[in-house]
Amino acid sequence: MIAYRIDRRSGVATYLQIVQQTRQALRLGLLEPGDKLPTAREVVEATAVNPNTVLKAYRELEREGLVEARRGLGTFVRRTLGPDADTGPLQAELAEWAARARKAGLGREDVAALCTAVLDSTYPEGEDR
């Protein structure tokens, strides 16, 4: 059974943390289709988080098609989150770009800050696809 860890000081909304951690578990293969997610009550009891927040997260996951709620039984994983695009060429391009950035004199932290800025503008908050 997946255990959520809520970091109240991270600046990320609590329900998003639950969504992200569920996706992470799916990605790492810790959750597979047919697995049951903890009931909202169990999550609340373990994390002392507002029940609404948990419901919101589960609804979000349901909207993305990752889980489905079966009345009286619980919430179950519907599909995995494997990468469906081939990342090989993308990764090679990125490595080439990183080499260029290093030659231009950018340090590791500068590159990380640039990447974060680009990610923020490409994937605005809340969107993962």
Binding site: T39, A40, R41, N50, P51, N52, L55
Partner: peptide, 8 residues
């Protein structure tokens, strides 16, 4: 918006 999980 109510927070009922299970309005018994």
């Amino acid at each position: 918006m109510s927070t009922t999980l299970n309005r018994a």
